[in-house]
Simulated assay, not measured.
Amino acid sequence: MLRAGLLRFVIASKKSFFFHLMKVTIILLILNLPTLADDTQEDLSKINKQAEKLKRKGYYEEAEKLFRILLEKNPQDSQLKLKLAFVLMKQRRFVEAYDMAFPVAKSEPKNSYAFAVLGNILLGAGNFREANVCLINALVLNKKEDLAWAGLGLLDFYENRLQESIQKLSNAVFLEPDEPDYVFSLAQVSARAEKYKEAADYYRQFLEMAPPADLDRRERIKGLMNFLRYIGDKSKLYVISGEKKTVVPIRVIRERPVIQVFIGKNKGPLNFVLDTGSGISVISEQTAERLKIKPIARGGKARGIGGEGKFEIVYGFLPSVTIGQIKIGNVPVYIRKFHAQQEDIDGYIGLAMISKFFTTIDYSSLQFSLVNYDEQQQSISQNSN
């Protein structure tokens, strides 16, 4: 046991040392760059290559410093301006990025990369309509503009056109297979589209291409991969059975709606908060232990509910959740420690569990209603006739 513990410590120490050494190397390189920049065109080319490597690995602040040094030597270089705009966008500095990219697109109306960068900036800032115009224009100019395909794929994702998103992101990966951002986006969209095994494979590919310097993020992705592989073996998630519609009473606790649900074959009702602001549902660690719900995957850290500390991310799987007369089978959940126990809350119902229903919370009558989507569509069709 002592040897195993010591071995784990040595491995962890080596990993920490590796990433620390990488960071120190980048800092030393940047400190030495001003003297390099005074030299030959070959030196500038080396700096540009290093900046591109840093950009691809996600070291955006360091890449920004290099691109700024290059721009000092070549202030009219539009491609450098666009590269700088891109790394500013990745740091969510959208105004600065826009101010850098827009003049280039305006002065070079046939520059497809300029419109691709500008479109992604607008997309990140939430201006979907103008982003779409820029990204489509980039593809009109150059059908092989991978960044434009990626941007349109993300736009489809945000607007819930999942199959179209997967197709466009796949085009981006085909055109630029070494760009880890595209692979990561494909993993996210595939998971949302319930293509869980494909999503796990894309996450694995992403880690092989660009392992995050943040060890905790790396562990989170590994845990998510294992979770996706587990649920990928299930025929289907969120399987609906029982009645087409149901109504259950709610209680309001600290301005949050709480309903009672039943998990699996357990007879006792459990108190769950309706939390449509989150995707996946959550069950408390204490309730999971009581119901003998075992973890199926784990990895990385997240903030605990009701507290300020961080705790390990743990995934679980519920055989079914019954709300009134409706049963929802095969429900993935997070298992988390709850700090505020005085409220007797067992979990939180996320949007994914009830996304196939029309839902209504009526605070005047203190009722929560669920209507199967197909049933509601049929009712609307009959009323229109």
Rank of each mutant, 00 (worst) to 15 (best):
M1L: 14
G5P: 01
L6P: 01
K15V: 09
F18K: 04
H20E: 14
I26D: 05
L33W: 03
L36G: 04
D38G: 10
D39L: 14
T40L: 07
E42A: 14
D43F: 07
L44Q: 10
L44A: 03
K46N: 13
N48G: 08
K49S: 12
E52Y: 03
Y59D: 08
Y59L: 10
E62C: 10
E62I: 04
L66C: 13
L66F: 05
D77I: 05
Q79E: 13
L80A: 06
L84M: 11
L84C: 06
K90G: 00
F94V: 05
V104D: 01
E108K: 09
A114H: 07
G119P: 02
G124P: 09
G126M: 10
N132I: 07
L135I: 08
I136F: 09
K143N: 06
G153D: 13
D156Y: 08
D156W: 02
N160T: 12
N160V: 11
N160M: 12
R161G: 14
S170V: 07
A172W: 00
L175V: 09
E176D: 14
E176I: 00
E176N: 15
D178K: 02
Y182L: 05
S185K: 12
L186D: 06
A187H: 05
A199G: 13
D201C: 06
Y203D: 00
Q205Y: 05
L207K: 02
D216V: 15
K222I: 07
G223D: 03
M225Q: 15
L228P: 06
R229I: 08
I231R: 08
S235Q: 15
L237Y: 04
V239G: 00
K244F: 04
T246Q: 12
I263V: 15
L274S: 10
D275T: 11
S278K: 06
I280W: 01
V282N: 02
E285N: 06
Q286W: 06
G299F: 10
F311I: 15
I313L: 11
G316N: 11
S320E: 11
Q325T: 14
I326P: 02
V333F: 11
R336V: 12
K337N: 08
Q342Y: 11
D346G: 00
G347H: 11
I349K: 01
F357K: 13
Y363V: 12
L366D: 02
L366H: 03
L370E: 12
D374K: 14
N383T: 13
